[in-house]
């Protein structure tokens, strides 16, 4: 067997392994270069110029783009909204995701079926989630308004997606509906690897349920949870489809996050240079946001050793 692997310079059709590796990687590398690497570089380049929207020609250096990013009130407002959107989403998704995973791992009857059902929203296209929740939250026939009024939560119908005060919290709830299953699934997989002996030993020491969770379960799931939370933070902060489809950034910009702002600047205001500068700054923000996660991720992994 080793004969074939170590001393077979010629493999398929007389190609050397090196040529074969290069040949196999050619198309994938080309695709990633043209559609990821080159656009990344182009964004940095465009951010330094005023770019003509129609011809794409770069004119006059535009260091002012970056100045605008930091002074424009609309961009500043969108930045705060993005932070509120991301923090709100993550706080709810982490807590709800862990809670769901614990319930689904408790050995209840119908557990396997429940696990399958809980994952459904993650598979639902953003546009379908939009249809469902625009219907549920509408202020004329919407079920949410009806039920909330029935139980006395509100006195009058609320236009959840049409009121600047309620639109962002509503978007966060819908987003949590769709994406909490991701956290649940990862935590669930991790929960199944907790060694029973740890619990048994702690129980002998007289630990209660809460103590078991805090001293064993939580530290055990922490690395997976943190990694999942980091990914979700990135994907949530930059998410476009769901918030845009639900409210198109409105009413009066009340749900315009940076992702939506970038598109608006680029295609409505037709300012490619500014949109690129905003993208570059937003990318840097991503790296900054990742640092605390990476730190606690390492700390939580050390606990494992």
């Amino acid at each position: 067997m080793t004969v074939a692997s170590k001393r077979a310079p010629r493999s398929a059709a007389g190609l050397s392994d090196r040529a074969l590796a290069g040949l196999l990687l050619l198309a994938p590398a080309l695709v990633l270069l043209v559609l990821v690497a080159y656009p990344s570089a182009l964004a940095v380049l465009s951010s330094l110029f005023h770019v003509d929207f129609v011809t794409g020609a770069r004119r006059s250096p535009g260091g002012a783009n970056y100045l605008t990013v930091f002074t424009d009130p609309a961009i500043r407002a969108a930045t705060w909204r993005t932070i509120a959107w991301s923090v709100g989403n993550l706080a709810i998704q982490v807590v709800a995701g862990v809670a769901c995973a614990l319930v689904l791992n408790a050995g209840l009857r119908g557990q396997t079926l429940a696990r399958g059902l809980v994952l459904f929203p993650y598979m639902v296209p953003a546009v379908v989630a939009t249809l469902i929740f625009r219907y549920l939250f509408n202020d004329v026939t919407g079920l949410v308004n009806y039920l909330s009024q029935q139980v006395g939560l509100i006195d009058q119908p609320v236009n959840f997606l049409g009121d600047p005060d309620t639109v962002l919290p509503t978007l966060i709830l819908v987003n949590c509906w769709k994406y909490t299953p991701f956290i649940t699934l990862i935590v669930l997989a991790r929960l199944q690897t907790v060694p029973r002996s740890l619990y048994d030993a702690a129980r002998l020491d007289g630990a209660g349920r809460l103590a078991l969770f805090r001293s064993i379960t939580l530290p055990w799931i922490a690395p997976s949870l943190l990694a999942a939370a980091l990914l979700r933070t990135i994907w949530t902060a930059y998410d476009f489809d769901l918030p845009y489809l639900l409210a198109y950034g409105g009413p009066v910009d009340a749900s315009t996050t940076l992702a939506i702002q970038i598109r608006k600047v680029a295609f409505d205001q037709q300012d490619i240079g500014l949109a690129s500068a905003l993208s570059v700054c937003f990318a840097i923000l991503l790296v900054a946001a990742a640092v605390p996660y990476v730190r606690s991720f390492r700390r939580s992994e050390q606990w494992m050793r």
């Binding site: 392994d17 990687l25 994938p28 990821v36 990344s40 964004a43 465009s46 476009f240 680029a266 949109a275």
Partner: peptide, 28 residues
């Protein structure tokens, strides 16, 4: 081969770049 190894690592970094950041240059 180093190229194959690098490709494996770099492609993972590409996975983390959000689509919205590439929307404008790809549109161009």
């Amino acid at each position: 081969f180093r190229i194959a190894r690098w490709f494996g690592e770099l492609s993972l970094l590409a996975y983390l770049i959000p689509g919205i950041l590439l929307l404008v240059p790809i549109a161009q």
